[in-house]
Design a binder for these strands. Sequence first.
DNA 1: AACGGAACCAACCGCTGTTCA
DNA 2: GTGAACAGCGGTTGGTTCCGT
Length: 348
Amino acid sequence: MGRAPCCDRSGLKKGPWTQEEDELLVAYIKKHGQGNWRTLPKNAGLERCGKSCRLRWTNYLRPDIKRGRFSFEEEETIIQLHSILGNKWSAIAARLPGRTDNEIKNYWNTHIRKRLLRMGIDPVTHAPRLDLLDLSSLLKPAAAYYPTQGDLDTLRALEPLANYGPDLLRLASTLLAAPTHASTAEQQMLLPWLIQAQQMSQAPPQHATAADQFMQTGSACQQMPGLVHASSAQQQHQEHMVACSGYAQLPAGYVDSQFDFVPPLMQMVSDTSNCLQWSSTVTSSNNNCNVGSGVSTPSSSPAAGRVNSASTTTFCANASNIVDAIGADAAGLFDMQLSDLLDVSDYM
DNA sequence: AACGGAACCAACCGCTGTTCA
DNA sequence: GTGAACAGCGGTTGGTTCCGT
């Protein structure tokens, strides 16, 4: 839509706020509360537009604002949340008490973003920059790896999770980014798991099982049809992440029980027969495309996964089965249109 | 001390989503 | 159902401060 900014009206002041203006605004809000921003400036005796007043209040004058440098913990939290939520500054700010979206956005652009770039990490995707990797390792001969029958059996058993895991991550992150749909309590339930899963997806176990390694190889093959073996590059990627990021610490002893902490969301899904139908469909569509290339890729990223329209339809239709299967317990979480819930544009 | 570039951050701008008549 | 009004969000700008030469 887009409307002309209200500040364009003649007589309204722009630019830095004076102490007198601040006092007028604070006094008015203390007395009347935050009401109609449109009428507030006139009632408060301010020559400002309502938008400017709201911004000044929310970003500077609010009594609960924490000022000063960001702590190490806050910085780590921002990085983790950004890897999940992308540039959803307001959503990130909602999880950092006392910090505003503007402050976090500024801090990201001036400090964190540059730091990640120096470390060779793409601040958009949170993955190592491909131009810094030794891509020649991707070109290893296809016959370099011969899986055993045991590997194949294990892979077959884990296949469903391997395929719909990323999509569940995406689903959960979408829910977290939709505060009007999911309650705070529900988001609090999802967030720790999402961060943990995100860490795992960025830094897989250093002494992974054969099945893990084989799954990774399979995943890489889906992303690069024609390349049978890409685990070397993958391992390089992982080591790079662990060495550089400093925020990818894994829970001790997680390796052999990586599905132990599967949260209710995933558990409910895995318990249903619908998920089998869904996972198998996604698996088949994955043969030619990369569904949900990773929750760590914000929608703005050009590196986001791409699929054709047919597989998008399949994915959405079967995701609907998941929602049905989860049932009334999670109804609040899914009280929205699927088209809204799933950022379909990511898959186009 | 003077200058220029980098870093920082408050504020603005343009857009989207929601509400309501 | 439609469109205007409004609130809020994310990207960008521009003024100020810091720091190295």
